[in-house]
Design a protein around this nucleic acid. Structure first.
Ligand SMILES: [Mn+2]
Ligand SMILES: [Mn+2]
Ligand SMILES: [Mn+2]
Ligand SMILES: [Mn+2]
Lengths: 145, 145
DNA sequence: AAATCAATTTAGCCTTGACTAACTTTAAAA
DNA sequence: TTTTAAAGTTAGTCAAGGCTAAATTGATTT
């Protein structure tokens, strides 16, 4: 039980920060594919005006980001038309949505106010490893079941 | 108990993402002041070569960042000398260190492997509200006490 | 005191992710 | 069918945060 005489092997700090930077590099992509999937479900299509409104950024910013997502194989788009997810994009969106939900439900199960949980989950989700995610899911499941 | 008929007032998505972007803007600053405080405690001074090694970035990157921190009032520095925290920098470092510890201890109390917890805490810490932090501290405290 | 080596700085480059302003296209109204 | 409004695009700007390569400074050895 957390035996003081057997400290765990500490990862090199540089490794920790390298992983942090990798997570950062994926954040916007993850939030976009998730939001695009939401819009397609809720409204039948993902228009960039809706993306701009939901993210609170300008249409120009959305345009830039969509181009990047297209370059990276997560979406397809044609001028003046709405945005579509590729298979890869749909896959990532599904994974991110599940992860987001687990984090949100976990925070609420812990006792965090739902509104606060919405704010915090939006950031935390991108920094949760598979292992931690399993712990979160188990905890919330335990509370429910 | 999570009464379905009374949903919570959902924050505008744009507000959630605006807060996320604000948190991002503070991350590097927070990690730097914390690391500088650590180095001063552990080694008596914070040299940029040590910062570069611990963050896993080049000396040039450290130099840029230190200039930004100086501009923003968190550190002082003179050419070819080590870096010092201002009162403001020390204050922020103390706050971030406490928060980091609470997040790390919480993850370990939850059952996450200490090594994984070190990785995840480095990112999660920047996205945890005061309220969530209190819940984390309470949970870990309950396990200990 | 000179030479050398390590640390630091500078200059120049890049990508991401934000913005404004101006322009073009599409869709809706008149 | 023309006009107008909304949506989308393009061009240009900026800051943050990374990099490499080259120049400089300071500290250690010889
Ligand atoms: Mn999300
Ligand atoms: Mn998110
Ligand atoms: Mn930290
Ligand atoms: Mn951190």
């Amino acid at each position: 039980m957390g035996d003081r005489s057997v400290p765990h092997a500490r990862p090199n700090k540089a490794e920790v920060f390298a992983r942090l930077r990798e997570a950062h590099a994926r954040e916007v992509t993850e939030d976009y594919v998730e939001m695009i999937a939401d819009l397609i479900e809720e409204e039948g299509e993902a228009r960039s005006v809706a993306l701009a409104e939901r993210f609170g950024v300008t249409a120009a910013t959305v345009n830039n980001t969509i181009k990047r997502l297209e370059r990276d194989g997560f979406v397809t788009s044609r001028p003046y038309r709405s945005v579509f997810l590729t298979d890869e994009g749909r896959e990532l969106a599904a994974k991110c949505r599940k992860r987001h939900e687990i984090v949100y439900n976990f925070l609420v199960a812990l006792g965090v106010d739902p509104t606060t949980a919405e704010f915090d989950a939006e950031g935390i989700e991108h920094h949760v490893s598979e292992e931690t995610l399993r712990m979160f899911a188990g905890f919330a499941g335990g509370k429910r079941g």
